Simulated assay, not measured.
Amino acid sequence: MRLRWSERSINDLIAIQRHIAQNNPVTAKKWIIKIRQRAKSAADSALIGRVVPEFNQQDIREVFLGNYRIVYRVRDDDILILTVFEGHQLLKL
């Protein structure tokens, strides 16, 4: 399936990179690459992610990378990354 990123998810990645870069710019870049790779693997097997418990809808799923939750919507021809956030935070859509 094709992978698409919402404007919000792109802004999430930027914020994550800036936050990590305050302590280690090299690690920040590596984390963003890993997050993008994890999202791509979700697109390859869209239904592998768990249903997001806050919504309990079959089309809204998530995968994890470390403490980060990558939330996406499964659509007919693609998956749309809705948001990426640190898992100790509350999900807000």
Rank of each mutant, 00 (worst) to 15 (best):
T27E: 07
F64C: 08
N23W: 10
T83H: 12
R73T: 01
N56V: 04
D59L: 00
I81V: 12
L3E: 02
F55S: 00
D44R: 11
H19Y: 03
L91P: 15
I32V: 14
D59P: 00
L13C: 06
Y72D: 01
I35A: 11
K40D: 11
N56D: 06
V74C: 02
N24P: 09
W5V: 05
Q58L: 05
N11V: 12
T27A: 10
D12R: 14
P25C: 04
A43V: 08
R38C: 09
F64Y: 13
I70F: 05
D44N: 10
K92D: 15
Q17V: 05
I16M: 04
V26F: 10
R2L: 09
L65H: 12
L80R: 01
Q58V: 04
M1Y: 09
V63P: 14
K92F: 15
E7T: 12
G87H: 13
A28S: 03
I16R: 06
T27R: 11
I81K: 05
L93G: 09
V63E: 05
K30M: 13
R2Q: 12
F85I: 08
W5E: 05
F64Q: 11
I60D: 04
K29Q: 08
Q37W: 06
L93F: 08
I70L: 11
S45F: 00
Q58T: 05
E54C: 05
F85D: 10
R61P: 04
A43T: 08
L65M: 13
V52T: 01
S41K: 02
A43C: 09
A28C: 03
I10L: 13
K29V: 02
F85W: 10
K40V: 07
T83C: 13
K92L: 15
V71D: 02
D59H: 02
K40C: 08
Q17G: 04
G66D: 13
L93E: 07
I81M: 08
R18F: 12
N67F: 15
V26E: 08
E86H: 15
A46Q: 08
I48D: 00
A42C: 03
F55P: 00
S45I: 05
W31I: 14
S45V: 05
Q89S: 14
L65W: 08
R8K: 15
A39E: 09
K34H: 06
I79L: 02
M1N: 11
L82G: 07
L90S: 15
Q89T: 15
Y68A: 10
N11P: 13
S6E: 08
N11K: 14
D76W: 07
R73K: 07
I33D: 04
Y68N: 11
N56E: 06
R75T: 06
I14A: 03
H19N: 03
I35T: 13
L47R: 03
R18I: 05
W31N: 15
D78G: 04
R50T: 03
V52N: 01
S9M: 05
L47G: 05
Q57V: 00
R2E: 11
D44W: 12
P53T: 07
R18T: 07
I33V: 10
Q17M: 07
D76M: 08
L47D: 04
G87Y: 13
R2F: 10
G87M: 13
A42I: 02
I60V: 10
S9A: 10
I48K: 00
H88W: 12
